[in-house]
């Protein structure tokens, strides 16, 4: 067998797909760097809040990182921030920038924006031909199940997550009642 037939797809993966959420990040709180992606894995180091790290890869809830003092280990993915803080550290400036951004994004984006702007949306004329085209791509439940079998996707029965306390409005509305995939715990 031609070895390239095996190699080629692997090469394509690396060529076309950017590495998962790689790059610089910062810890959002004081965290324990662990040897393996488990809650009870051995501790490698304690990292204070806003420690800058380089992300290597993610695996489920865990992200493998490389510290500036050359240690490697795993952190909870949601303990990492890839935004402003990752680049600057938090001096309170981030919060100020957020306010400024909110203010400026409220009204000024309508003109001169390429792609699907607010204006494009509000002045859009219906495109019934495209809607018909969309219908042609529809997949039936049976077709979706065949796809899932080929893709080895396994159904799990999991309850929806409750809203964190303090959140208002819709979050506390009664959950869908229809079984099997409706209810809260």
């Amino acid at each position: 067998m031609n070895p390239f037939r095996l190699l080629l797809p692997a090469l394509l993966v690396f060529a076309a797909a950017p590495a998962t959420a790689a790059g610089p990040a910062a810890t959002v709180k004081s965290v324990t760097l662990r040897k393996a992606p488990f809650i009870d894995a051995a501790a490698v180091a304690r990292l204070p809040r806003q420690t800058r790290v380089t992300v290597i890869k993610r695996q489920g809830a865990w992200t493998k990182v490389h510290t500036t003092d050359d240690r490697r280990g795993w952190l909870r993915m949601l303990d990492l921030d890839f935004g402003e803080n990752a680049k600057k550290g938090d001096s309170g400036l981030g919060a100020l920038l957020n306010v400024a951004r909110t203010g400026s994004s409220g009204m000024t984006v309508a003109t001169g924006v390429r792609g699907l702007s607010e204006e494009d949306l509000t002045s859009a004329r219906p495109n019934p031909a495209a809607l018909k085209q969309l219908d042609r791509y529809t997949v039936s439940a049976a077709q979706a199940r065949r796809f899932a079998r080929r893709a080895r996707l396994q159904t799990q029965n999991i309850h929806y997550l409750a809203a964190p306390s303090g959140e208002t409005g819709n979050a506390s509305a009664p959950a869908d009642s229809a079984a099997p995939f409706g209810d809260l715990p």
Partner: peptide, 22 residues
């Protein structure tokens, strides 16, 4: 949906559209 499609049409790639539908 017809209005949204009026603002931006569908990508002309039936295989891709089918994959996203799957």
């Amino acid at each position: 949906a017809a209005n949204l499609l009026g603002a931006a049409p569908l990508v002309r790639d039936p295989a891709l559209q089918r994959y996203v539908n799957d």
